[in-house]
């Protein structure tokens, strides 16, 4: 106990400041590595099982249109939707907009799948 007190007394203000800075930097780095996982959504578009587009939604400063197969897919920083399709039923367009990590939608006749990846709190979703 006395030894601990002695040791504490030998610490200068500079030592304490250095320790505080090191711990703070570690915590910020640790927290930011989690935060980057949680916030970023990656859009992937597949044509017949082959990845055609992979883009971070955060990197989209304005609406962007991707033509994949017979479909036009519209994405912005927050979500994605099918805008046009050559398919006969148009079910993909009726599906509307998708914003959640782990969610997916498809234009079955055109064999195009659109999926959002991120740090969803589940392994898969029953569609």
């Amino acid at each position: 106990m006395n030894t601990d007190k002695k040791l504490l007394r030998t610490l200068t203000k500079g030592d304490i400041l250095l320790a505080a800075v090191l711990i703070l930097v570690s915590l910020v780095w640790f927290a930011s590595s989690f935060a980057s996982d949680e916030e970023s959504l990656t859009l992937k578009i597949y044509l017949d099982g082959t990845e055609s587009v992979s883009v971070s939604l955060a990197s989209l400063s304005e609406e962007k249109h991707y033509t994949v197969g017979g479909c036009i897919i519209c994405a912005d920083s927050e979500g994605v939707c099918f805008e046009k399709s050559d398919c006969p039923d148009g079910l993909c367009i009726k599906r509307g907009r998708m914003t959640r990590a782990g969610d997916a939608m498809a234009c079955v006749p055109e064999r195009v799948v659109v999926r959002l990846y991120g740090s969803d709190d589940f392994d898969t979703l029953a569609y």
Partner: peptide, 22 residues
């Protein structure tokens, strides 16, 4: 943090059986 990511993994989505297969 890395305990939950410790196996190699791969993901793919495609159309099969008239629906989405992930």
């Amino acid at each position: 943090r890395d305990r939950k990511k410790d196996f190699n993994s791969a993901e793919k989505s495609t159309v099969a059986m008239n629906t989405i297969m992930t």
